[in-house]
């Protein structure tokens, strides 16, 4: 089983990203379970969503305890990720320097990409679809076409711009 955590702030599209990601795994023939974090969510407050995916039916009915992949929409909530040892971290950001690292870290400047396409506002760029482009490239768990179809099924407005954002992130994500 693969367990994935998406961590950001209300308004960045953390929950919709989780739904799209769940759809991608479902469309690639996997069993999938998607849980949004729940509480008094609002714009700006920490927001999380979690996905389990497996070749077999999933029976766990509790929050994920350890993530194989953590996707960080905002560095300010990075401490909420429950990444396992040797897990994979995908971070929205640029100009990183790390002294030493024991995990695989990938970065993508999703804020800049989303803003260049007019997705969200400078205060809160909506980066859900963009960062999933990077996720698709890093994990190679499903094809970019599957991601495009999942975005189309979940996003009514500006679907083409969201797909473009995903494509730019797919091409620009880099290994740190």
């Amino acid at each position: 089983m693969k367990q994935i955590g998406l961590h950001g702030r209300g308004g960045q599209g953390v929950v919709v990203a989780g739904e799209i990601l769940a759809q991608c795994y479902f469309d690639s023939g996997k069993y999938v379970q998607f849980m949004p974090s729940y509480g008094a969510e609002r714009r700006g407050s920490p927001s999380h969503s979690y996905i389990r995916t497996d070749n077999n039916k999933i029976y766990q009915r509790y929050e994920i305890e350890e993530e194989d992949i953590s996707v960080i929409f905002s560095l300010s909530v990075i401490d909420t990720a429950k990444l396992r040892e040797n897990g994979t971290l995908i971070i929205n950001g640029s100009n990183f320097k790390v002294k030493e690292k024991k995990i695989d870290i990938y970065t993508v400047d999703a804020n800049a990409i989303a803003l260049s396409l007019g997705l969200g506002s400078p205060a809160i760029p909506i980066i859900n679809t963009t960062i999933l482009g990077a996720y698709c490239k890093v994990t190679n768990d499903f094809s970019f076409d599957i991601l495009v179809n999942a975005i189309k099924s979940k996003i009514d407005k500006k679907a083409d711009l969201n797909i473009e954002g995903a494509r730019l992130a797919y091409d620009s994500v880099r290994y740190l």
Binding site: E19, V32, M35, R61
Partner: peptide, 12 residues
Amino acid sequence: LDGFLLTHTKEP
């Protein structure tokens, strides 16, 4: 149906 654990948890 259990709140959130079922109401908001999506699966096929």
